[in-house]
C-alpha cells in the first residue's frame, strides 16, 4: 500500500518535467547572439493567440511563427523589449502575457485560488471539529 502511494506521488512529479521544446526554426534566428537571446526571452513571455496554453516560443502554429519573426524584425530595428511587449499587449490585451499583471480585472485569477483554499480550509476545519464532537 505504502509503495503504491509512493509510486503514485512519484508519477505525479512527471508533470513537472519540462515537456516543451522550442520551435524556433534555424531560418528565423538572428545572426547577432545578443539580439537572438532577447528575442527568445520575449517569445517565452508571449502567449500564442491561437493555442492559449503555449508561449509563442513553444508553439509551431503559423501565427506564433509570424509573431517570432515580427519580434526579431523589431529588435533589429532597435526597439526595446518593453516597446515590443507593449505593442502586442495593446493589440491582444493582458492575456497575451504568459504572466499577466495583477490588476482589477485579473485579481480573481491571481487571488481566487488562495480564496478557495482559505474557504476550503475553514470548511474542513469546521467539518472535522464537528465530527470529533
Amino acid at each position: 500500500m505504502k509503495t503504491r502511494a509512493i509510486l503514485i506521488i512519484a508519477a505525479l512529479f512527471l508533470f513537472l518535467a519540462p515537456n516543451s521544446h522550442a520551435f524556433v526554426n534555424p531560418d528565423e534566428q538572428l545572426s547577432d547572439p545578443a539580439l537572438e537571446a532577447r528575442a527568445r526571452d520575449i517569445s517565452k513571455d508571449i502567449r500564442c493567440p491561437v493555442c492559449e496554453s503555449q508561449s509563442i516560443d513553444e508553439s509551431n502554429a503559423d501565427v506564433a511563427r509570424d509573431l517570432r519573426i515580427l519580434i526579431r524584425e523589431r529588435l533589429t530595428e532597435g526597439d526595446s523589449d518593453e516597446e515590443i511587449i507593449e505593442y502586442l499587449r495593446i493589440r491582444y490585451g493582458d492575456v497575451v502575457l504568459m504572466n499577466p499583471p495583477l490588476n482589477k480585472t485579473t485579481s480573481l485569477l491571481w487571488l481566487g485560488p488562495f480564496l478557495i483554499l482559505i474557504l476550503g480550509g475553514i470548511g474542513t476545519f469546521l467539518f472535522i471539529r464537528k465530527a470529533q464532537a
Binding site: 493567440p49 491561437v50 501565427v63 509570424d66 509573431l67 515580427l70 493589440r91 491582444y92
Partner: peptide, 13 residues
C-alpha cells in the same frame, strides 16, 4: 500574404 496586418489588427483567427 505575410500575416502582418493580422497581427497589427490584433487578430487571433
Amino acid at each position: 500574404d505575410k500575416g502582418r496586418a493580422f497581427i497589427d489588427w490584433g487578430l487571433s483567427g
